[in-house]
Simulated scan of single mutants.
Amino acid sequence: MSSLSLLLLLAGALLVLGLACYALLLWRRVWARQREQAHAAQERHQRLGGDLQLLAGSLLEGQLPLIEGAIRIKVLLDNYDSTLSQDARCEVFHRLFAATAHVPTHADWKALDKAARRQHEKHFNELELQHKAAARTAARWLLDEGLQQNPRHS
């Protein structure tokens, strides 16, 4: 073999080695980013679980209005674990959410005239009378079982 062939072969081997090292560097970055994302997702899941425990406890203790609590729990459950959210024991939260989805919130609520507000509040009271026991049962189940048996599914 000529020295030119050896030189070209060596240059090619160095180029391949350099590209392999660069590829390894890029893969390490990908793996590090995946670990960071998994850690962030785990922290988010734990935070949502804690928020759900707080809301369910507050709902049971009467520190949170039933309708507001049910809406907040439903939204957090959807983000926490869609399978848990779709459990039949959580259906009441979905019902209350759907029954109040048309009600204006925040600034739109403040912009309503008193008659419209009273009409919505009357509807809230009817919903609360109709679903209070089921919502309390669902909140108790979430605290006692639902959130406990669900370390991570999302």
Rank of each mutant, 00 (worst) to 15 (best):
Q42W: 11
G18H: 08
A107L: 11
H131V: 01
N150E: 09
Q149A: 08
E43R: 14
R118N: 13
F124T: 00
D108Y: 05
F93H: 00
L127T: 04
H94M: 08
L59R: 07
A98G: 06
W31E: 15
A13P: 00
K132C: 10
L142Q: 00
K114M: 06
G57D: 03
A20L: 14
A13T: 09
L54K: 08
K132P: 10
A135S: 01
L15C: 09
I71K: 09
L9W: 15
L77K: 02
S2C: 10
A32E: 15
V92H: 05
L129I: 06
H106D: 12
T83Q: 06
A111E: 06
H102F: 10
Q63V: 09
Q37T: 10
T105W: 06
L4S: 14
R140V: 05
D113K: 06
A40E: 01
A101W: 12
R29I: 01
A41D: 14
V16D: 01
M1A: 13
R33N: 03
E68G: 08
L127S: 00
G62P: 01
Q53T: 05
A135L: 02
A13C: 02
L84P: 04
L8S: 07
L26K: 06
H39C: 12
K122Y: 11
I73Q: 03
D78G: 04
S5L: 12
L9I: 15
P104L: 10
S82C: 10
K122P: 06
H120D: 09
K110W: 04
L25A: 06
E145V: 13
Q130D: 07
L147V: 01
L143D: 07
S82T: 09
V103E: 10
H94Q: 15
L9S: 13
H123V: 02
R95P: 04
L6R: 14
H123L: 06
L14R: 08
S58R: 15
H94V: 11
L143S: 02
L143M: 00
V16Y: 05
H102M: 10
T137C: 07
W109A: 03
A20N: 13
L7A: 15
L25D: 06
F124V: 04
T137W: 10
V75K: 10
L129F: 12
L54C: 12
Y22K: 05
M1F: 11
L7H: 15
R140Q: 11
L8V: 10
D78M: 13
D87H: 09
Q46D: 04
P65Q: 06
Q130A: 12
S5A: 14
S85A: 15
H106A: 07
G18N: 12
A101L: 13
S82G: 08
G12E: 03
